[in-house]
Amino acid sequence: MKKPKNNIVEFKNVSKEFTSKKNRRLAVKDVTLEIGQGEIFGIVGRSGAGKSTLIRLINGLEKADCGQVLVAGQNIVNLNYNGLKQIRKNIGFVFQHFNLFNSKTVYRNIEYPLKIADKSSKISSDDRKSRVLQLLDYVGLKEYANCHPNSLSGGQKQRVGIARALATNPQVLLADEATSALDPETTVEIMKLLKKINREFGITIILITHTISIVRLICQRVAIMSGGEIVEIDTYKNIFFNPKSQAGKSLVSTFRILEGTGAVRV
């Protein structure tokens, strides 16, 4: 599978270092990467490889030390708050631990990003309401509008998380281990939902995972990160059956032991 022509996210020689009094850590090291519009792009790699840092650079939760991060053609590295706000409206974020607001109902959780965007785009409260209800319906949680997240199952929480991330109609959805806290069946459900979102709305999805079967299930391309660098980018098939990098080989052999995915025909 080839990368689509139009890039929605682009890294050009991006590095990010964390410094504290005691030590410095190059979390992302000279990454150059192009992600096409409408792709489902996977990122795998060992703990501490820099995956989270890499995707947090896309919406400016982390600021690159050097290089360019382009989102829909715009370099976001030196944007001020208002610039970032516009970019973030265009990028949904789905978290491993859901990060829902327990003090708000499911309805209010999903409405929150719309309220933030409100000032600039003048959405009326009626439009907002119909948008929230539409999203709730889409993720199958219509009856839960007035519940608080505490009372939901993990899978339901993540559905709220996804609805919330989609609220402002973003072009890009970032998912950082979105199903790591969920059981296998729920994981598959969430992945199907993401796939559906990608297909129906053409939203580009960039997801981090520790599970190779997720990559097989939905990713068109996958990047392997190691020590802050992207050491390999390819399709699931190529990476799984013919890893070229050292990190790729070691990851794949581990996946084979853990998941036995090798037996599955692709």
């Binding site: 939760l61 990060n99 607001f101 933030i116």
Partner: peptide, 9 residues
Amino acid sequence: EASFAMGAS
């Protein structure tokens, strides 16, 4: 972080 990611001040 979630609030920031949605563009909140």
